[in-house]
């Protein structure tokens, strides 16, 4: 993988971004998508929104926690080194906090403030996630047909009994055949 001086600077910027975000990813990494999108697409021009969305999609179609799209974004910029950089950096915050929590387990479980804080943050987290979805949607669904297709799929996926993998597979086939 190419790792000349310019790339090293980029890797450090990327590591710093994810290190900061790693302490903020309440409710998973999806609420961070607007910030990641700003870095990779808007301010650095490292990829298009379409590419960004396709990495999210590939990680979702593969086994394992969906967080792996973070590694793919890093891979796009710096190969294997980039993948390990972003995945490592995004894990620092959770790792430290979880290690602490595992040691003060009983006190955390009993804290009456927990429910209040979670209830207060939920609408904000959902708002940030929606912002991320809208950003991605703008990139991948550039025709009315595609937009309608996406809305129909979302409606389908609201039923939790449906295996999301089946929907992903069908969408890939429909896309491939119809030339979306």
């Amino acid at each position: 993988m190419s790792a000349d001086v310019a790339d090293a600077g980029l890797l450090i910027d990327m590591a710093w971004l994810y290190l900061k975000l790693s302490f903020l990813c309440i409710g998973g990494t999806i609420p961070l998508i607007p910030d990641m999108h700003r870095f990779f697409v808007e301010s650095r021009g490292l990829m298009t929104t379409q590419q960004f969305a396709s990495y999210v999609a590939l990680a979702q179609a593969a086994p394992g926690p969906n967080i792996l799209y973070v590694a793919l974004l890093g891979h796009h910029v710096g190969g294997i080194t980039g993948a390990l950089t972003t995945l490592g950096a995004i894990s620092v915050g959770p790792f430290v906090l979880v290690s602490l929590a595992a040691r003060v387990f009983s006190r955390l479980a009993a804290n009456p403030w927990r429910e209040t804080v979670l209830a207060g943050l939920a609408p904000v987290t959902v708002g940030l996630m929606l912002a991320g979805c809208l950003l991605l949607l703008r990139g991948v669904a550039d025709t009315w047909a595609a937009l309608l297709f996406g809305a129909a799929l979302a409606a389908f996926l609201l039923f939790p009994r449906l295996n999301p993998l089946v929907v992903l597979a069908v969408a890939a086939i429909v896309g491939s055949v119809s030339g979306l």
Partner: peptide
């Protein structure tokens, strides 16, 4: 086009 379809579905999944 297949990956694009996949990306639309993944975005729809996130939204749901």
């Amino acid at each position: 086009h297949g990956v694009n379809g996949l990306a639309i579905a993944a975005t729809a999944y996130l939204t749901a």
